[in-house]
């Protein structure tokens, strides 16, 4: 089976810190920041490199702040 590797890019200024993406990720890639963004929200950020580019986080994000990239390796 071809392995894949993914990356996500989070528009942190648009993130409202709802945390839904954290639970949606099977690889525990996402956690909430200690810092806050301009609106005062703890935003989503990646904490490891296990992303598979499955798009679950982006599909679920109500504010559409996540862009997903994926390559086959």
């Amino acid at each position: 089976m071809a392995k894949v590797k993914g990356e996500i890019v989070i528009n942190i200024e648009r993130c409202k810190g709802c945390v839904l993406c954290v639970a949606a990720c099977n690889e525990q890639v996402i956690a909430m920041s200690k810092e806050v963004n301009g609106k005062g929200y703890h935003y989503a950020e990646t904490v490891n490199e296990n992303c598979t580019g499955c798009t679950n986080c982006a599909v679920l994000c109500p504010d559409g702040v996540i862009t997903v990239y994926r390559v086959k390796i």
């Binding site: 590797k5 993914g6 990356e7 890019v9 580019g53 798009t55 982006a58 599909v59 559409g64 702040v65 996540i66 862009t67 997903v68 990239y69 994926r70 390559v71």
Partner: peptide, 12 residues
């Protein structure tokens, strides 16, 4: 090398 337009699988 992953974050490139051609590898994008989901965007707003």
């Amino acid at each position: 090398s992953i974050i490139k337009e051609e590898n994008c699988v989901y965007k707003r």
